[in-house]
Write a protein that binds this DNA or RNA. Sequence first.
DNA 1: TATTTAATGTTATATTATTACATAGTGTTA
DNA 2: TAACACTATGTAATAATATAACATTAAATA
Lengths: 132, 132
Amino acid sequence: MLKQETLSKNQKIILDYIEKVNEPTKAYSILHNVQKKGIKAPLQVYRALDRLVEIGKIHKIESRNAFVACKNSSCQLSKATAFSICESCEEVSEISDNKLSKYLKSFQDKAGMKFKKYNLEFFGLCKKCSIK
Amino acid sequence: MLKQETLSKNQKIILDYIEKVNEPTKAYSILHNVQKKGIKAPLQVYRALDRLVEIGKIHKIESRNAFVACKNSSCQLSKATAFSICESCEEVSEISDNKLSKYLKSFQDKAGMKFKKYNLEFFGLCKKCSIK
DNA sequence: TATTTAATGTTATATTATTACATAGTGTTA
DNA sequence: TAACACTATGTAATAATATAACATTAAATA
Ligand SMILES: [Zn+2]
Ligand SMILES: [Zn+2]
Ligand SMILES: [Zn+2]
Ligand SMILES: [Zn+2]
């Protein structure tokens, strides 16, 4: 049985906002920007974020404590994510590379640990920032 | 010219503690445990942590906001890190796999971004937790 | 309907991290 | 030595991120 696909009111409001801004967004910035829609407390934001991450609609950029909408048809429910992050302008893009994801999904730990998920973050300078 | 190798007093105290506990440790837990050594404020801990990360003596586990000592001869100064994390017991180990690091170091982004650093975190169940 | 599961609302609080400013040590060089 | 730069330190206050606890409501399902 699949996880529910229909979003609740708060979940919709928050996903809409994240998709609209189209760049990494932080929880409290989301909160400030959706207060006019009736969302008043951090917890309402964090609960929606948790759920949206769980169903793969958004991802958390761990090194930045920020959230982005998934650009990659929901990444098999958030199990395999990779991002490039510009250390100058903080632009983030989701990497969609079949070879890379195959390689990582099948990566076998020496200690025999079985992996269910991974998150990879690359850091560097984006094209714009590297010519500056 | 290489970054300075000699650690300051606070840096030594904090690195010693992290190496001793030998598991992911959080900043405020470090603070509580080194107060008897004269470290009184969060900032003293965070400053030392920043420096130790910079010189590759420790790494930050981004998804856990925790720090571990490097097990891998300093990871070329923190530029290329990979960890496995057990979602049940929270055990973390640093992955040392030549093929993996070669593959990731040479990974070429489609947008032409040049990477200088990466961090990879795998999640799953460790051996102990998977037989439970 | 009765039950249970998911979502919401609200207040308070915990946890993680930084700003700002003052001071002290260390090495370099004029 | 004096002036300077640089690194590290000390301290207080506060910002930013995230969760606990508890009450209520809505939706799903048996
Ligand atoms: Zn995705
Ligand atoms: Zn950039
Ligand atoms: Zn290392
Ligand atoms: Zn485990």
